[in-house]
Amino acid sequence: MMILLGAVLVAAAVVLYVVQPVFSGERASLASLDEEFTEAEARRHLSLVALRDVEYDFATGKVDERDYRRLRDELGREALDALREVQRSRDQAEDAPPAKDAVADDLEREIAAYRAALRSGTLCDRCGSANVAEALFCATCGRQLESERGEEAAAARGR
């Protein structure tokens, strides 16, 4: 008797729990939410990981300078493309783009700064912010920038 009661209770609880959304209309989201990792962000993340690995390979003398530059440009471009796409999808998500040109200009400027930082090696390795060419510390997080990286790499190549 007790067993029967237990079985009925378990079955009822399971069925109620599972079926409830169909009747109450409670929904699970099926689209990406605002704060989540989108495809573009995943690409940006991966290109940045790859970028960091390439920088490391260069610093330890595993790739030569020409290949390093090519790879870095390539990966940097990918990261920027991904960034641009992230921006574009945000713009589309917001219905009213009041200052779209302004945002685009803003973005272009940021991208240029990012490129310059990539080239001069002043991209912060802790927070990823782009800094001006002569910066010694990251403007965003205060980390000392790896200005010796060039010397280190040169030393590694010289051996």
Binding site: H45, R90, D106, G128, S129, A130
Partner: peptide, 20 residues
């Protein structure tokens, strides 16, 4: 253990880029 994976919020473009 990699470039930080951050939540991207609807902030101005500059802030978002800084968070790369």
């Amino acid at each position: 253990g990699g470039p930080a994976r951050r939540k991207v919020r609807a902030t101005p473009a500059s802030a978002r880029l800084a968070g790369v």
